[in-house]
């Protein structure tokens, strides 16, 4: 990075650290913070969409759909989320490869499961064997995002289902009295009003999502935990920057990063609650009204 970094052994402490903290591997470490934020940015809306779908399915009149929705929303209550993470990453991968296998190699006669192996024809492999490294990495990341979205979608479905039931029944009846059809009442009355009831649950979910991001490490993505352990481990003299075991300091850095992210989210979500409470028939809304007239 800097011009004086060519021979690190001769540098004094401040300059040594300046060089050490800007080495190529450290830039990768800083970029992995972006990976975490990217995961949060993609997963949150996708999970919300999944959750909305699950909540609507759980209210459906059509029995199989309702059972599916209720099953989806309640499964996360009984089973640890990490079990789902470990399960879906392999299961989704195999499901995609199996589907491609059915489409691309219809005349393949060998069984797919041979003893302890899962074998599909080479054309159905995901990603293809000759694909460049970045395709492998983004495929792994995409699988991780989908896994997160499925699991957190179930949590979100839980919250949204509760919020839909919390909207006063009289509102829907009034809409019916005005001649709105059921789907109109759902779109125009129920959905706009449910967010304030869902907000405490959803903000809690956001906090949980933030705190679940280190699990990316278990899914095989090179995230901040991976880099912190990699960079912090003891480096002997054969490395350019030898140092003892510094993993504790790197992990402390991660701890501070997460505490900061939590604090920031708390502040933003607090403001959002105030914004959404305007004109609502809730305690918070009434308090705002009182403050405005006083």
């Amino acid at each position: 990075m800097f011009s004086f970094c060519t021979d690190p052994d001769t540098l004094e402490t401040a300059r040594w650290f300046a060089c050490y903290l800007t080495s190529g591997k450290h830039l990768g470490f800083y970029a992995s913070f972006g990976t975490v934020l990217l995961l949060l940015a993609i997963t949150a809306p996708v999970a919300l969409a999944f959750g909305f779908g699950g909540a609507v399915a759980a209210r459906s009149r059509f029995l199989p759909l309702r059972l599916f929705g209720q099953g989806y929303t309640s499964i996360v209550r009984g089973v640890p989320d990490i079990v789902f993470f470990l399960f879906f990453v392999i299961a989704l991968d195999q499901a995609f490869e199996w589907l491609r296998h059915q489409v691309k190699c219809p005349d393949w006669d060998q069984p797919i499961r041979q003893g302890n192996d899962f074998l599909v024809c080479p054309a159905a492999k995901l990603p293809l064997g000759n694909a460049p490294q970045w395709v492998h990495e983004s495929y792994g990341f995409a699988l991780a995002v989908l896994t997160f979205a499925i699991v957190f979608g179930a949590f979100a479905a839980n919250v949204l289902h509760g919020a839909m039931r919390a909207v006063p029944r009289a509102q829907i009846e009034t809409a019916a009295a005005y001649g709105m059809t059921e789907s109109q009442a759902f779109r125009r009355i129920l959905v706009p009003q449910m967010w304030i009831y869902a907000l405490p649950g959803l903000s809690n979910l956001w906090m949980i999502l933030i705190k679940a991001t280190p699990l990316l490490f278990l899914l095989g993505v090179e995230d901040i935990v991976y880099w912190a352990r990699e960079l912090g481990g003891m480096k002997t003299q054969i490395y350019a920057y030898p140092h003892p075991d510094w993993r504790l300091w790197y992990l402390l850095g991660l701890l501070v990063f997460y505490l900061g992210l939590t604090k920031l989210s708390e502040i933003v979500l607090g403001r959002l609650t105030v914004r959404l409470s305007h004109g609502q028939a809730t305690l918070g809304g009434a308090a705002l009204q009182k403050a405005a007239t006083a």
Partner: peptide, 22 residues
């Protein structure tokens, strides 16, 4: 309460292990 609720349990495990090893 803030430190233990605001950070992931996963990081807390890693950190504690490093601390105990040291």
């Amino acid at each position: 309460v803030f430190v233990f609720r605001g950070s992931p349990l996963f990081i807390q495990f890693f950190l504690a292990y490093q601390l105990f090893v040291m």
